[in-house]
Simulated scan of single mutants.
Amino acid sequence: MVEEKEGGGSGGVMASDATDAFDAANAEHPYLKIIILGDSAVGKSKLFDRFHLNDYKEYRYSTYALTLYRHKVDLDGQERLIHFWDTAGQEIFNSMHPSYYFQAHACIMVFDVLRKVTYKNLTMWHEELCQHRPDIPVLLVANKIDANPKASQMKFNMASKYNMKLYYCSASDGTNVVKVFKDAIVAAHEYKKKTTDFMDAVMEELQLMDEDGDA
């Protein structure tokens, strides 16, 4: 199932499996696609809930395959559709389907400052990301600092090692949440304008052809 969220409402689009879910979401052709990676229960979905709905929920159930968040923003004087993709529980398999990474323009990687293993596992997630989208900008989020304020004084070597911007965040009290998502949109937009990815260029042309055919 693809769980789509836009504004304050939500709906569902049924798919037979994860591949169908990812393909259906990619077919919408958003202007920007930003993926969110990290272990289960690090707070990925709650971060977006705080950003988009400004309504933190203490508990949230994962849905099968994918949670797709749709967000509209003004870029260069035009209203643009942004897709934020959340793993929705698929991360328990320690690997994502290639379609999850397809044509992503930026990535937000999240770990839980209360669980060291979620930080260690970012190496695995980063390696898989680089197999599919090695050049996109990556933003690193140290989440749940409200439960461990001292974590905001800690240095995390992964950020400097891979040239990632590090954000100390809390979905609970909202610390830096809006900033990280807005910065991700800006980074994805800049990447899209500068990219020379051949497949991205081909897909852009095909999308324009489809739009012309529908006109």
Score class of each variant (00 low, 15 high):
D74Y: 12
N121E: 06
D76L: 11
E91I: 01
P98M: 07
F84D: 13
W125G: 05
V110G: 03
S99E: 11
R80G: 07
Q78W: 10
P98T: 07
V117L: 12
N94M: 10
I82K: 04
D74R: 15
S99W: 08
P98L: 09
M124N: 15
E127C: 01
N94E: 11
L122G: 05
K120Y: 11
N94Y: 10
S95N: 09
L129H: 02
N121M: 00
E79D: 12
Y101H: 15
I82M: 01
L75T: 08
A106G: 14
Y119G: 04
V113P: 02
L129T: 02
A106T: 13
A88K: 01
T118P: 02
H83P: 01
F111W: 04
D76W: 07
M109K: 12
I82A: 05
Y119S: 08
S99Y: 14
L114Y: 05
D76Q: 15
H83V: 00
A106R: 07
M96V: 01
V117C: 14
L122F: 00
T87V: 09
T118F: 10
H126S: 08
Y119F: 11
L75F: 11
Q90E: 11
F93V: 00
V117P: 07
S95M: 13
D74G: 14
D76P: 09
N94S: 15
S99R: 15
P98H: 07
W85R: 07
V113M: 13
D112A: 03
M96A: 12
E127S: 06
F93G: 05
F84P: 14
L114C: 10
L129Q: 02
E79W: 09
E127I: 00
D112N: 03
N121D: 03
V113S: 05
F102L: 08
Q103D: 11
H97Q: 08
E91P: 05
V110D: 02
M109D: 09
A88H: 09
H105L: 05
L81T: 13
Q78I: 04
C130D: 04
F111H: 04
S95D: 10
Q103L: 07
L75D: 00
S99T: 14
L129R: 06
P98F: 09
S95T: 14
D74P: 07
F93T: 03
